[in-house]
Design a protein around this nucleic acid. Structure first.
Length: 261
DNA sequence: GCACACACGGCTACTACCGA
DNA sequence: TCGGTAGTAGCCGTGTGTGC
């Protein structure tokens, strides 16, 4: 049973001629993905209203904008609480830090209770901080703290993916991690987050585009991320709580070594 | 022990990006 | 310009832990 179908694409809404209050035909695209197929204009009552994309972010009130050539509208406020929240969901997600037992609801509770401000704060939580939360017993608290501690050391590509850089998903994160490893040729030397910052800051937009599979859009996105002061402060905070510390190793003919990306 | 809440995993389509 | 592919998003069934 499909209970809801969402449509975020303004162009698609215009193409369908969809208005608020319309009756629509919903299909199943594939197995479960709900798909708005057509609008039943014959069933209109006259009470329908045209849809307009909000001009302001419903959470922080800042202007929302649409980049040229893109479908998505984004809030321009880099400190938007909703973006921060979504960034945290992404940070702990499966392909990123993969923190077992930490989902959106618990993140919401931690943020709402002021127990965390950003992802780095997660690593300083104690069991006692969690027990007062609703539906959080001692076992849950212990499991979650253990899960967070276990994930202090993750692969470099997972770490880069977790940062939530626009257009940098699992694959591009892997490409970047290989590039960082290539730049940092000193084997068995501990690589810290701040080393990564230095390496990435040294790249110009053009340099980034020379990396295979990295085009202008992705390069621009990576460049801007590593030149944003807020992101650098976040990296410093992650470094302080002990995230990272990668040792780049290679597989040589004589020694069987593990590759840490 | 049961009902409930939440997280996870798997699936698929659409959109955007990249390289040839 | 086009084909291949990565990134993103939402749904549902299932498993786990909590509170009563």
């Amino acid at each position: 049973t499909v209970s809801r179908a969402t449509l975020h694409n303004e162009d698609e809404i215009k193409r369908l001629g969809l208005q608020i209050g319309d009756t629509v035909v919903v299909g199943r695209a594939g197995d479960v993905i709900p798909d708005v197929r057509t609008v039943l204009k014959d069933l209109r009552t006259g009470k329908e209203k045209p849809f307009h994309m909000p001009k302001k972010c419903p959470v922080c009130g800042f202007v929302v904008g649409r980049a040229e050539g893109e479908v998505a509208y984004r809030c321009v406020n880099k400190n938007c609480p909703a973006q921060k929240r979504e960034g945290l969901y992404h940070f702990v997600s499966r392909k990123a830090f993969d923190i077992d037992g930490l989902g959106p609801k618990i993140i919401d509770a931690l943020l709402d209770q002021g127990l965390i401000q950003d992802a780095a704060d997660l690593f300083e939580l104690q069991e006692g901080d969690l027990v007062p939360l609703e539906r959080f017993g001692e076992k849950s608290a212990k499991n979650l703290i253990d899960a967070i501690r276990e994930r202090k050391q993750i692969t470099l590509s997972r770490f880069l993916y977790a940062l939530g850089i626009l257009h940098v998903g699992e694959e591009n994160a892997h490409i970047l991690s290989r590039e960082i490893a290539r730049k940092n040729r000193i084997m068995n030397h501990e690589l810290r987050i701040m080393d990564i910052e230095k390496i990435m800051k040294a790249y110009s937009r053009e340099d980034l585009q020379t990396i295979p599979d990295i085009g202008p859009k992705v390069a621009e996105s990576i460049f801007l991320w590593f030149h944003d002061k807020r992101n650098i402060i976040f990296l410093e905070k992650l470094d302080k709580v002990g995230i990272g510390r990668w040792v780049l190793m290679c597989r040589s003919r004589f020694q069987k070594r593990q590759i840490m990306w």
